[in-house]
Design a binder for these strands. Structure first.
Lengths: 163, 163
DNA sequence: CACCTTTACGTTATAATATAACATTTCAGC
DNA sequence: GCTGAAATGTTATATTATAACGTAAAGGTG
């Protein structure tokens, strides 16, 4: 049996988001420190805004918030910061939504999969070795060498189905 | 053993694109006729532009060509036409590229997978039941009901690896 | 510390992708 | 031919993203 593939689950009823957010920022601090990368106040703030929920966040939403906080904010402010956070594996981009979401396991930079609930908008993140391997094998059978995989699964989460 | 999953392969050395294009347009005509949908000259022309290659085509590239051909062309011309072609399953949208590609099997409207060669830009399309099923199972294990899957695999095709 | 190099951020402009809203034309069926 | 629905035309604007160049702050080196 393979290990638990869930990196970031849909929020449980008892989810304490404050703790979740603190943990994410703390992990980010450590990850950056370990790699001698600078998690500047701006970068930290953007990461915090992304972790504000478990839903993907739009670049221009981040920009709106930053603008309210300081005058120098402009699109490059946001996109450069996102670029850094993506490079460090602290956030992921959801291609099918043009939006960004925090990564539950920054160290961990393999390809992951996203479950996107169309009802509540929440996203869960998986790192499922079986999916990765099967896609690799199937592509390999056709002589294709895989660099990366974009796997985004749209549907309805258990909470929404139950509710 | 499962059936051949390849809907649209990477072009073989002997690929005769004229025939390929004609076949695609012909299938489209039939598919629309069967469903009593109108493949108007505009729609047919856009489909033809998309089938002009086996690479994903950008909406504004289509617009540029249409503009050269007739003055009334504007963004809604293209996006509405794409919407029709997508609805009919005649084209697919590649989310990770914001681009559109012809569908090799219009009837066939299950979820498919794309192999995207970063070197030559060509895209192959698969309908691999094993991938679909595995993703469905894994998501189902977490209580998630899958509506649709976006599977886009980036890498290097066999021709580019060989060449 | 003074210098310098690199990295981060500011600023302005513009490119690329996509949709809203309403007017006009065309087509199929009567 | 008339009519209602579908398709297309037209204008405007929203959304997403990058280019290019200038300034400032951080961190290393003598």
């Amino acid at each position: 049996m393979s290990h638990n593939p869930v990196i970031a689950p849909f929020r449980a009823p008892n989810h304490r988001h404050g703790r979740c957010l603190d943990a994410a920022l703390d992990k980010a601090e450590r990850a950056c420190k370990a790699r001698e990368q600078r998690l500047t106040p701006l970068r930290r703030r953007v990461l915090e805004l992304i972790w504000d929920s478990h839903e993907p966040v739009k670049a221009y939403h981040i920009l709106d918030v930053l603008r309210a906080e300081h005058k120098g904010a402009a699109p490059p402010t946001v996109y450069r910061t996102l670029e850094f956070l993506l490079r460090q594996g602290l956030v992921h981009r959801i291609e099918s939504l043009n939006a960004y979401i925090g990564c539950g396991e920054p160290g961990h930079d393999t390809t992951t999969q996203f479950l996107i609930c169309r009802r509540c908008g929440e996203v869960a993140e998986l790192d499922d070795d079986d999916i990765i391997a099967l896609i690799g094998t199937k592509a390999g059978d056709l002589g294709f060498a895989v660099d990366s995989q974009t796997v985004e699964i749209q549907g309805c989460c258990s909470k929404c189905r139950a509710g």
